[in-house]
Design a protein around this nucleic acid. Sequence first.
DNA 1: GATATTATGACCTTCTTTGACCTTAATTAA
DNA 2: TTAATTAAGGTCAAAGAAGGTCATAATATC
Lengths: 157, 157
Amino acid sequence: MGNLADRIEEYLKMILDDAQEGYVVLQRGFLAEFFSCAPSQINYVLTTRFTAEKGYVVESRRGGGGYLRIIKLGLDPEGKFQRLMAELIGEEMSQTRAYNLIDRLLEEEILTEREAVIIKGIFAERLLADLIPNPNELRARLMKDILANICRDDVNN
Amino acid sequence: MGNLADRIEEYLKMILDDAQEGYVVLQRGFLAEFFSCAPSQINYVLTTRFTAEKGYVVESRRGGGGYLRIIKLGLDPEGKFQRLMAELIGEEMSQTRAYNLIDRLLEEEILTEREAVIIKGIFAERLLADLIPNPNELRARLMKDILANICRDDVNN
DNA sequence: GATATTATGACCTTCTTTGACCTTAATTAA
DNA sequence: TTAATTAAGGTCAAAGAAGGTCATAATATC
């Protein structure tokens, strides 16, 4: 984890883990100071690492008393899965978006690490690009199929 | 073993042997510098010498903090997987042949039932046929990648 | 000599970092 | 009670820092 963005991400996830309410509130300026970086670097980290796919919501407020609130969402297993599928996947899915979603499923322990690695493998642009007209469409389709199969009771004991 | 590519290969395998995690992380630029060669020479070595068939997986990341990660696959005793990849799978694979192979891997407890279901899903003709010119070629490629990934030590503890 | 392998360089894509400038909210002064 | 000031956070473009690709040149190999 050499770079700044990764370190900030790590730090935020660490304090999120400690917060049992499931969210943290802090100031952008404080973070920027803490990591000796431009304040906009914080926004960069938030928009690239704390996305909906990855299971986070970020709220904020400007002006005096302004703040950032980073909320970690849980996936309760009550069929909201299907909604997630439809909303998040759509008709097309880039490698990056697919990987984000897989990481999320891994964090939620819906996938094992081995499964995550296998699935990431088959979604790799490198493997698909020259063989398929539209890899994004295939990924969306496969992702839905995979999620459906994961939900099957008969294979989850 | 006089040429550059061979020396780079040798060097990488040496440091891989020293790494008890089963992988090494390093920078392409550093390697190119180290061997006084064009950076693309490193890619040449990676694509010709560190393939799945030969028992390696390579991951990478661009941009600041970018890196190459070369993973040495945990070799099964007789190099069973390598043979499987080269001989059994070849360049094309029908749904039927793929399913047979998956069943066998399941029987041998190389795959879990869930994994088998997931993988069969993505190999289904129904999902691939209308989107891809040659599903058999894609299956062969994906199957090799999957086999490689399940040999990774870092995800099998 | 023909073919296969290896090496290079020009150009491309992706990811990160910074800084200048903008918007919004709270506080304070007139 | 406005109006000005201050204190936040937001946006965007440009520069920097990696790795990737591909055509071509150079070398081995047969």
